[in-house]
């Protein structure tokens, strides 16, 4: 039995690290054939795959860059439009203010003219009324004076006085006739 184990030990025992140069044992020919075929066929497939991937990535980047550029352009346009609109708003506001001011002034002017006219009218009316009243009062007073004078005349008149008055009046008339002649 010792022989058996010994021979197994001698089978498996080796001398340490080293290089095996036996071409058949290391299976180099088959491995190189397999590697060659693998590289020959695999290379095309792999490079095709990777090229496609690269192209896809670059086209995606390009398209997104274009999109970005377009969006930036649009943003710029929108900003410009916003500026324009803001400018117009300011203009309109300023115009509106000035117009409102103008209208206000006009209205104030018209109103003041109207006011002045009305004032004049009022003054005139008051004046007229005053004159009318004064006239009325004068009439009344003169009427009353004539009435009182008539009363006094009636109460005091006698034939002598009557005659004297007539005499006096005739003289007056004569004198007037002489003057006219």
């Amino acid at each position: 039995m010792k022989n058996v184990t010994d021979s197994f030990i001698s089978l498996s025992s080796a001398e340490g690290f080293g290089l095996n140069t036996n071409i058949l044992e290391t299976n180099i020919i088959n491995l190189s054939v397999v590697l060659g075929v693998l590289i020959y066929f695999g290379k095309g497939v792999l490079s095709n795959l990777l090229d496609n991937r690269k192209q896809k990535i670059s086209s995606t980047i390009q398209s997104s860059e274009e999109l970005c550029k377009g969006a930036a352009n649009q943003l710029e346009q929108a900003r410009a439009r916003l500026r324009e609109v803001e400018r117009r708003v300011r203009e309109i506001r300023v115009n509106g203010y000035s117009q409102i001011q103008q209208e206000k002034n006009d209205l104030i002017n018209v109103a003041s003219i109207n006011l002045k006219q009305l004032e004049n009218l009022k003054n005139e009316t008051i004046h007229l009324e005053q004159e009318r009243v004064i006239e009325l009062v004068q009439k009344q007073i003169s009427y009353q004076a004539v009435q009182r004078a008539l009363g006094t005349l009636n109460s005091r008149l006698n034939s002598e006085l009557h005659l004297r008055t007539i005499e006096h009046n005739i003289d007056l008339l004569l004198a007037m006739k002489n003057i006219t002649d």
Binding site: S13, A14, E15, L19, N20, N27, I28, L31, L35
Partner: peptide
């Protein structure tokens, strides 16, 4: 394991 010729390197065991 399938592609590299490991047989080139000899180990003690």
């Amino acid at each position: 394991g399938a592609l590299f010729p490991w047989g080139i390197i000899k180990l003690p065991h």
